[in-house]
Design a protein around this nucleic acid. Structure first.
Lengths: 226, 226
DNA sequence: CGTAAAAATGCTGCATACAAAATGCAAAAG
DNA sequence: CTTTTGCATTTTGTATGCAGCATTTTTACG
């Protein structure tokens, strides 16, 4: 699904960013959906959105089709597109699948991880820990996502990364708004501590188990936010 | 991915032909890719394809974007789209993920299946068995897919179905051209016999195990076809 | 006054038109 | 003879225009 990797360092002396309008639009719309600027269930008016973003309807429609395939938008024939609304069961279903995917990722990652890979996760983890300590929710949230994404990347399985990213993307909005209480947050943080320890020990079985538990608990943490 | 369910019975007296051009195009292009009419690595010329299909570039481009998000085509900025070429590792990776997904589906399906559900799979299975007996490869292949898809449907997990369909779709072409020998085919058929027995016994653990083995062996069966 | 038909409005879906970028080719320079 | 540079052609990317369907408003009739 076209790997929505975080916009990391664009190759320094690389080709000077040509036409990226399509990707820009897709990213922009996706963000608008995730951050709730486009409310679930609301129609996406082509002319209005286009004017707002300063583009014509043609590239906008293409971006919408792209997001529809991604599952963030629902196409209704002759009636345009609406922002997909996920039910509680939908979210639960996604988390179950994500649980299995990340368990797999954990197992694989422990076999394929280089020392550098692990160091990178450790760094993300420590940063996240710091955000937790000062209760910087937004950065915590972003680093959290980055860690899970990074583990998939380490697992060196393109298909896995791709589907994980897709489900993650659909869930982002829910997690974005889901302000879990201090107790739940602390539990999540504790699970992450276990994760990094298991990864550094390259203990695939444990990492897999902890990740599974983490995703299982995720449902408890977000189910009230639906 | 938006649930590429097989075009099963279109509701008989249903709404007479909505505007389905978009879906029609997506389906058509997908089929062309799966069946090799559009070769992996080849460029998809918009004007030419449009003329061939009798549509203008606009809806065609939208369909291509959709398939790009699905992972079947690759978009290269300012240089159009090419049919994605999958390496051996790519296929292997997909099968590993699919293995985990179908193991999950097997477990869940045994808990959620109604008698009707099981009967339906049994019927598909028997049909497939008949096709195997007379060596009708194409129909066997299609029924095979249908069975796996049906098990996911029974598992009653939208996210699971959707992700499974997506990976299945990317693999279809490989399997389509992969003519496994009689011995391997017979082994696959035997595994399917085990599957249906486990499902009818609602033995989730066994079904899951057999499905996992089935997907693991799938790699052995198709790896020569890359 | 309420309901239903009909006109009007707005939006989507598709095609066409135009602009910009890439590719291929040929000619000129080294 | 090889390489480079400029031009022509092809192809992608974006905008606009028009037709058809949906929805809403208006109007006529019970």
């Amino acid at each position: 699904m076209s790997d929505t990797l975080p916009e990391l360092p664009v190759s320094p002396s690389g080709p000077i960013r040509r036409t990226a309008l399509h990707d820009t639009l897709v990213t922009r719309l996706r963000d608008m959906i995730i951050e709730g600027e486009l409310a679930p269930g609301s129609r996406m008016h082509e002319s209005q959105l286009g004017e707002q973003l300063g583009v014509s309807r043609t590239p906008l429609r293409e971006a919408i089709k792209y997001l529809a395939s991604e599952g963030l938008v629902e196409l209704i024939p002759s009636r345009g597109a609406i922002v997909k609304r996920f039910s509680g069961k939908d979210v639960h279903d996604m988390l179950i699948v994500l649980k299995n995917l990340e368990e797999l990722a954990g197992s694989l990652a422990c076999e394929t991880a280089t020392d550098d890979d692990i160091a990178r996760v450790r760094q993300l983890h420590d940063e996240m820990r710091a955000c937790y300590d000062v209760k910087d929710r937004l950065r915590y949230y972003k680093l959290n996502q980055a860690i899970h994404t990074e583990i998939c990347r380490i697992a060196d399985n393109q298909a896995l990364s791709s589907v994980q990213a897709q489900l993650q993307s659909r869930l982002k909005r829910i997690r974005f708004i889901g302000h879990e209480g201090p107790d739940k947050w602390s539990a999540a943080m504790a699970e992450h501590e276990e994760m990094i320890v298991a990864l550094e020990a390259r203990d695939g079985e444990t990492l897999s188990k902890v990740l599974g538990l983490h995703l299982l608990n995720a449902w408890q943490r977000v189910k009230d936010a639906i």
